[in-house]
Amino acid sequence: MMEKMIIGRYVPADSLLHRMDPRSKLILVFLFVGVIFLANNFWTYGILLIYTLLMAGFSKIPPRFLIGGLKPVLWLVIFTFFLHLFLTREGAVIFDLGWFKIYEEGLRQGIFISMRFFLLILITSLLTLTTTPIEITDGLERLLGPLKKLKFPVHELALMMSIALRFIPTLMQETDKIMKAQTARGVEYTSGPIKERLKAVVPLLIPLFISSFKRAEELAVAMEARGYKGGEGRTKYRQLSWSTVDTLMILLLLAVTVLLIVFRG
């Protein structure tokens, strides 16, 4: 029932994005998150959209799968759109029902904010779809490396992140399994009145929490049994390598940034 979700999932393939160094991909995503706030008119949002679609193309992830997987979040995007559309009261009135007015600024805001939302989700999904959790963690640990001098727990943070990412699919599977078991006992998750469906969450969440706590405990014991004792003196099996493509990709985003600054209103 959850098999179409793509958030936090990795799709093995051999594409430009897959081959990039995780550090450059992380840098790109962080930059993108900042850069997106530069956009404020149709031109600039257009540029960002083209950039994002280009990246999606580079990833070789089948578009149908990408769209299918983003469907659940699209509802959130649409909700954002209408929220802005109805609640903004600035600019000329473009639609008037007497008690109910839609303003030009509302339409603009609605489109821009939901677009911003959508692009952010797409770009971050592309990161996790083309990078294994281990790579993301390694990359992050290396990027934040300098902070170790300030006693910032970089290794622990990276470990926490990799465990979280690693267990998303497991949690999904577990959810699916328990949903099926409760469906077999007469719960309806996909039809019926909203009130009933909300009530149906309890028989799902409790077993999930219990198994997650159990799993966390088992994982901790297993790590300790295998001699894990923090990042001190721990060597790396995988070496990261920065290539020309990584540099070029960062330059591309910088070029986009320049364009945004030029074209923003």
Binding site: K177, I178, K180, A181, Q182, T183, A184, R185, G186, V187, V202, P203, I206, P207, S211
Partner: peptide, 30 residues
């Protein structure tokens, strides 16, 4: 689903109620 009952692999993972009685009654009540 009422006519065909399934006991899954490791069915103990589906327990969630406060008491055993409530958990057993869950299916019939549904």
């Amino acid at each position: 689903r009422e006519k065909v009952g399934i006991v899954f692999q490791f069915p103990e993972h589906q327990l969630f109620e406060e008491t055993v009685e409530k958990d057993i009654c869950f299916g019939p009540l549904n």
